[in-house]
Design a protein around this nucleic acid. Structure first.
Ligand SMILES: [Mg+2]
Length: 604
DNA sequence: CGCTATGGCCAC
DNA sequence: AAACGTGGCCATAGCG
């Protein structure tokens, strides 16, 4: 009915369903629909004609995750579009019909979330070449604060589309509206092409980073990483025993059973039943906080505190990782994450379902989970970590002489910072002094203030203020740089990374102090976190090009890459990684990458 | 039962 | 009221 002759179509044989060019009324806007043909039997595949074009538009749907069990492929040029019923068509014949176009590096591919299309095509044995534009990523580059990201959201916001949603459609409707999908993607592309013409840095960022990164991420997600499920199940039983013991001891101290995982019930036990002091303990909306930072203030007052901390650590590991990850492996015991490109305004990737960017490493107990991530037989895992990545970038962006000099002679930046602040020689810096300096080196990049430092360090407010003042005395360029960012956020309305990735800063003009200051801190952090993210992406593209065919990037964790490679090639791969990553971009600061190799991730 | 808010905590 | 940035996910609790 959108096209006004649905009933006519319904009475035609499938292969006669040719819809002529038309316009589709969609409320305020009008979609320019091209001639469209649905193909659901192999002999009609020869009707698929996309020749004589340098761009094609695609969109697809699969029943399974990561492109498994493909259902539909919409594919179109500026003149005509086609819908392939992949459930009915022979996969080999589909591949024969479309590979010439999809694998042709001279024909640019344009879509919405092309990474998903690429994974579907991979499952058909098709390696899509030449990502020319992704309207999801394009919209995000133009406004990285954009949260409404569905195709319908984009069409409504940019094309004045007011028709029915494109999401949550029965497959039948998804197929029937192929012409509309292609038309919306084409019109969003045209709209973004125009908008980007006024932001040449974003065009370059897209062309040199986001588009070439897309196939790299699709490969990483499709390949997955092997999990030793047996090992984790054994670890689960250990944790279970530990949890039972902790529970019984905690109930003993409380004199009754309660749900330790309920912050409300726990607060009741601590502050009412056991009468522990609430002075200096943070208040939440509902009750006194029982967060780890608050339990620290009560440690030593009662043996139950330490038990609760242990209970939290063990149940966190068991519920979030040990019990969950084995449920998510494929038939080859491999885990497939999804790397999202359009969540973090700084340009970082995020990882979800499962999140493989937050696998524990800090505690001995937690590191057991990393041990369960293993190389396939005959292979090893190779990790490559940028050392002090964001702080080095802070030095480069601010041009701070002291920091640049320290990094360029490979000094320990936290020791150097402590020595300057305390006015002593680096060799005389104590562990505590280094620890304080480290907290500030990191904190400054997040817009840390005296209050925050006092809360996290235990120093009083005055001492914290002195410490930060001294810090800026020894890093004057960094202070100036932060002031510049605050001013840019306010006067220009956005801040940007070295490569021009923008973050709009509307909230620095908020009348609410909390909202306004939070916006300034995000603005300060953006160029450092974002430049690191940009350079890591660039490194991934280069690494993927240079690795031998039997070595593969599996994961990216912001400043590190995890690679799976044949044991025999581990050394060679390590060299490629270190060399490529350290030289990724010409900066006034040296970049340093540490390489490590092992059979599992816990060894690295 | 699914959705949302809250408190909490894992990573960089 | 909060005071340190970027994420994702867990259990609990309340609601319709
Ligand atoms: Mg590191």
């Amino acid at each position: 009915q959108d096209l006004e002759f649905r009933s006519l179509l319904a009475n035609l044989p499938e292969n006669m369903k040719v819809v002529p060019p038309s316009t589709s009324k969609t409320g305020g806007g009008v979609l320019e629909l091209q001639k469209h043909l649905a193909i659901d039997n192999d002999k009609d595949l020869d009707k698929l004609k996309l020749g004589g074009t340098d761009k094609i538009f695609i969109h697809s749907r699969a029943a399974g995750k990561h492109g498994a069990d493909p259902l539909v492929l919409h594919i179109g040029s500026a003149q005509a579009s086609f819908t392939l019923d992949l459930a009915k068509l022979n996969p080999g014949k589909v591949a024969d019909a479309v590979a010439e176009v999809l694998e042709n590096p001279k024909i640019g591919k344009i879509g919405y979330d092309i990474k998903s299309d690429m994974k579907l095509l991979k499952s058909l044995g098709i390696q899509l070449q030449n990502v020319a534009h992704d309207v999801l990523v394009g919209a995000f580059l133009l406004n990285s604060l954009m949260r409404a990201q569905s195709l319908t959201d984009l069409a409504e916001a940019n094309l004045r589309y007011e028709g029915p949603a494109f999401e949550d459609l029965p497959t039948e409707d998804f197929m029937e509206r192929g012409g509309q999908f292609i038309a919306v993607i084409r019109e969003l592309y045209e709209s973004q092409f125009h908008a980007l013409s006024e932001a040449p840095k974003l065009v370059k960022l897209a062309r040199e980073i986001e588009w070439p990164l897309t196939p790299v991420l699709a490969d990483m997600e499709s390949r997955g990483i092997k999990l030793d499920v047996k090992y984790l199940k054994k670890f689960a039983r250990k944790l279970e025993d530990s949890i039972s013991d902790l529970e019984q001891t905690i109930y003993g101290h409380a004199d009754h059973e309660f749900n330790i995982s309920s912050p409300g019930q726990l607060a009741d036990v601590l502050f009412v039943k056991l009468n522990l002091p609430t002075q200096g303990v943070k208040r939440g909306k509902t009750s006194f906080s029982t967060a780890a930072s608050e339990l620290d203030k009560l440690r030593g007052l009662h043996p139950i505190i330490d038990l609760i901390s242990q209970y939290r650590e063990v149940t966190k590991l068991k519920n979030t990782y040990v019990d969950t990850l084995p449920e998510m492996v494929d038939e080859n015991s491999r885990l497939h994450t999804t790397f999202n490109l359009t969540i973090a305004p700084t340009g970082r990737l995020s990882s979800a379902d499962p999140n493989l960017q937050n696998i524990p490493v800090r505690t001995e107990l937690g590191r057991n989970i990393r041990t369960a991530f293993v190389a396939d037989s005959g292979n090893v895992l190779v990790s490559a970590d940028y050392s002090q990545f964001e702080i080095r970038i802070a030095a480069a962006l601010s041009g701070d002489k002291g920091m640049l000099e320290a990094f360029n002679r490979d000094a320990d930046i936290h020791v150097e910072t402590a020595a300057l602040i305390y006015g002593i020689k680096p060799a005389a810096v104590t562990k505590d002094q280094r620890y304080s300096a480290k907290a500030v080196n990191f904190g400054i990049m997040y817009g840390l203030g005296p209050h925050g430092l006092s809360v996290s360090s235990g120093m009083d407010y005055g001492a914290s203020k002195d410490f930060i003042d001294k810090y800026f005395q020894i890093r004057p360029s960094l202070k100036k740089y932060i002031e510049l960012l605050r001013s840019q956020a306010e006067k220009q309305g956005y801040v940007e990374t070295l490569l021009g990735r923008r973050r709009p800063t509307p909230d620095v003009r908020s009348s609410n102090f909390v909202v306004r200051e939070a916006a300034y801190r995000a603005a300060i952090n953006h160029p450092m976190q974002g430049t690191a993210a940009d350079l890591m992406k660039l490194a991934m593209i280069e690494v993927a090009k240079k690795l031998p065919d039997d070595a593969h990037i599996l994961l990216q964790i912001h400043d590190s890459l995890l690679i799976e490679a044949p044991t025999k090639k581990a050394k060679k791969v390590g060299k490629i990684l270190k060399d490529t990553m350290e030289k990724v971009y010409k900066l006034p600061v040296k970049l340093k990458v540490d390489i490590s190799t092992g059979k599992n991730w816990g060894e690295l």
